[in-house]
Simulated scan of single mutants.
Amino acid sequence: MNGVGGIGAAGGGLQQVLAIRRQVVEQSDALRNLREAGASGQTGATPEVGGGFADTLRSTLDQVNTTQARANDISAAYERGEVTDIAQVMMARQESSVAFEATLQVRNKLLSAYQDIMRMGV
C-alpha cells in the first residue's frame, strides 16, 4: 500500500513541478522581452557615443561582472532565507554562467585571431 501512496504523492509533486516550470518559462520570457527592449534602446544610443572596441569590451565586462554580483547576492539572500523563490536564484545563476561562458568564448576567439595575425608573414 505504500507504493500506491507514493504514486499519489508523485502526482501532486508533478503538478508542483509543472507549475514551477511554467513560472520559470514566464520569467524567462519576461527577461527576454526586457533585454530586447533594452537592446533596442541601446542601439540608438551607441552611434552617438562613438566608443571604440575597448570601450565596448569594457562595458560588456562590466555587465558580466554586474550579472555575477547579482547572482551572488541572490544566492546569499536565499541562503539567509530572505529569498524563497528558488527559480529566481537558479535563473540568476544560470544567466551569470552563460554570460561568463560567452565572455570566455569571445576571449578565446580574440586570442586565436591575435595568434593568427602574429604568425602572418610580412
Rank of each mutant, 00 (worst) to 15 (best):
residue 14 L to K: 07
residue 16 Q to S: 15
residue 3 G to Y: 08
residue 4 V to F: 10
residue 99 A to E: 00
residue 65 N to G: 15
residue 80 R to L: 11
residue 64 V to N: 00
residue 16 Q to D: 07
residue 63 Q to M: 13
residue 55 D to M: 09
residue 56 T to Q: 09
residue 69 A to W: 00
residue 16 Q to A: 15
residue 30 A to N: 12
residue 63 Q to Y: 10
residue 57 L to H: 09
residue 62 D to E: 07
residue 10 A to P: 01
residue 120 M to K: 13
residue 86 I to R: 12
residue 26 E to I: 04
residue 92 A to D: 06
residue 27 Q to I: 07
residue 112 S to Q: 14
residue 69 A to Y: 02
residue 32 R to M: 10
residue 24 V to C: 11
residue 45 A to L: 12
residue 119 R to K: 15
residue 21 R to S: 12
residue 48 E to Q: 12
residue 42 Q to W: 11
residue 121 G to N: 14
residue 61 L to D: 04
residue 24 V to H: 02
residue 52 G to H: 06
residue 7 I to S: 08
residue 27 Q to N: 15
residue 38 G to K: 14
residue 64 V to I: 13
residue 17 V to L: 13
residue 61 L to P: 00
residue 113 A to D: 10
residue 73 D to K: 12
residue 27 Q to W: 04
residue 102 A to G: 12
residue 83 V to G: 02
residue 36 E to K: 05
residue 50 G to H: 04
residue 96 S to F: 00
residue 111 L to S: 15
residue 41 G to M: 10
residue 120 M to T: 12
residue 70 R to T: 01
residue 70 R to S: 03
residue 100 F to M: 09
residue 19 A to W: 01
residue 8 G to R: 06
residue 53 F to M: 10
residue 82 E to C: 08
residue 85 D to I: 07
residue 83 V to W: 00
residue 107 R to L: 13
residue 21 R to P: 00
residue 57 L to I: 08
residue 87 A to M: 05
residue 52 G to E: 02
residue 48 E to C: 09
residue 57 L to K: 13
residue 53 F to K: 11
residue 94 Q to P: 03
residue 41 G to I: 05
residue 120 M to S: 14
residue 46 T to S: 10
residue 68 Q to D: 06
residue 31 L to N: 12
residue 6 G to K: 05
residue 76 A to Q: 13
residue 52 G to P: 06
residue 89 V to M: 12
residue 41 G to L: 10
residue 57 L to A: 15
residue 27 Q to P: 02
residue 102 A to V: 10
residue 97 S to K: 08
residue 63 Q to H: 11
residue 64 V to G: 00
residue 90 M to P: 01
residue 93 R to G: 08
residue 63 Q to V: 08
residue 13 G to A: 15
residue 110 L to A: 15
residue 85 D to Y: 02
residue 94 Q to E: 09
residue 18 L to H: 07
residue 117 I to K: 03
residue 107 R to N: 06
residue 106 V to D: 06
residue 1 M to T: 09
residue 42 Q to N: 15
residue 107 R to E: 04
residue 113 A to K: 14
residue 88 Q to R: 05
residue 29 D to N: 14
residue 38 G to N: 13
residue 31 L to F: 07
residue 86 I to G: 11
residue 99 A to Q: 03
residue 5 G to R: 05
residue 105 Q to W: 08
residue 83 V to F: 01
residue 92 A to G: 04
residue 121 G to R: 14
residue 44 G to F: 03
residue 22 R to C: 07
residue 27 Q to L: 13
residue 72 N to F: 05
residue 43 T to W: 01
residue 49 V to A: 14
residue 36 E to N: 11
residue 108 N to C: 12
residue 44 G to S: 06
residue 117 I to H: 04
residue 77 A to K: 09
residue 115 Q to Y: 14
residue 81 G to Q: 02
residue 94 Q to K: 11
residue 68 Q to I: 14
residue 103 T to I: 04
residue 54 A to E: 01
residue 89 V to Y: 00
residue 64 V to M: 04
residue 36 E to F: 02
residue 81 G to T: 03
residue 7 I to M: 08
residue 21 R to W: 01
residue 56 T to W: 04
residue 31 L to R: 11
residue 22 R to W: 01
residue 5 G to W: 02
residue 121 G to E: 10
residue 53 F to Q: 08
residue 17 V to E: 00
residue 109 K to D: 09
residue 73 D to V: 10
residue 23 Q to F: 07
residue 57 L to F: 12
residue 60 T to N: 07
residue 64 V to A: 03
residue 29 D to P: 01
residue 42 Q to E: 09
residue 105 Q to T: 15
residue 102 A to R: 09
residue 24 V to Y: 00
